[in-house]
Design a protein around this nucleic acid. Structure first.
Length: 269
DNA sequence: ATCTGCTCCTGTTTGC
DNA sequence: TGCAAACAGGAGCAGA
């Protein structure tokens, strides 16, 4: 599942083959993913030179010299294939530069591609309400305390709220809560400040470890170069229902609205 | 404003 | 063996 670390890994993988390159050809094999591509995507990208790559939350950013930024979201199954040996069944968008072919492949089509004037990115509706980057300076215990104040929702739910912190998904929220010793169902308004500080540290630690490992994988995530990430092996609770936590107690799983939560009732209170 | 629950999509895994 | 149901889940939205 591409969460922040996987998107960061993807961007880092794309940078050497895209930065400074001219997009000579754009092929749209299918005009939409989760929502339609911009109708003039090909026209606006063809001939443009990529001036930089970046990331905001779980979105990848491809900035061009035309004043546009292509914003992509990988959804659940999205990945960029670099110089694929053969056409993939779900290669929805192809970008050809003088040296490489890039294919955006997304079997489950939960992803998106948009073209946004670079100067208006911050005000672009999907970005306008995003919270701070979890690896940035504005994500702190004080920030969480303010965001959680007076609310009764379970902490896991609010950590998934991109308006509070931008970039966490189901996997890393489960992992960070375990690392911080906080139960997923804990009401946010009843978490002591010191524990929020631990949570902030845990979020940063788990994300940085995942980026260092090259991004996680479940089944269908691949790095841009096609190599599978391997951080999955380091998960403490995610996907480990019934196995022993490091403390010896079993890892538990519950499902809310079709979404799984993994935790240890002994370590997390 | 907050919260719950549903929808989208399809390849893979699980269960009978 | 074969087929159906479950499962993965980010984001957006309706409705209470």
């Amino acid at each position: 599942m591409p969460e922040l670390p996987e998107v960061e890994t993807t961007v880092r993988g794309l940078r050497p083959v895209l930065e400074g390159q001219r997009i000579e050809r754009v092929t749209v094999n299918r005009p939409d993913l989760r929502r339609p591509f911009p109708h003039d995507l090909g026209q606006r990208l063809t001939g443009a030179t990529v001036t930089g790559l970046g990331r905001r939350a779980k979105y990848g950013l491809v900035e061009t010299d035309r004043g546009d930024t292509m914003v992509f979201h990988l959804g659940m199954s999205g990945r960029w294939r670099i110089d694929p040996a053969e056409a993939g069944k779900h290669d929805h968008l192809l970008l050809d530069t003088p040296g490489h072919r890039l294919a955006l492949n997304d079997a489950r089509r939960f992803g998106s591609v948009d073209l946004v004037p670079s100067a208006e990115l911050a005000a672009w509706p999907p970005f306008a309400a995003l919270g701070p980057e979890p690896l940035g300076p504005d994500f702190s215990a004080a920030h969480l305390a303010a965001a959680f104040d007076g609310r009764i929702a379970p902490v896991k739910l609010l950590l998934l709220d991109q308006r509070i912190v931008a970039g966490l998904g189901n996997i890393y929220v489960c992992e960070a809560l375990h690392m911080a010793g906080i139960a997923p169902v804990r009401e946010v308004g009843r978490i002591a400040r010191a524990r929020l500080a631990r949570l902030v540290d845990a979020v940063r630690e788990v994300l940085e470890a995942a980026i260092a490992a090259g991004g996680s994988t479940l089944r269908d995530y691949a790095r841009p170069d096609g190599e599978l990430g391997y951080f999955a092996k380091q998960w403490r609770v995610y996907g480990r229902e019934g196995e022993d936590c490091a403390c010896g107690a079993p890892v538990l799983r519950r499902v809310d609205g079709g979404r799984s939560t993994f935790w240890c009732a002994k370590c997390q209170r």
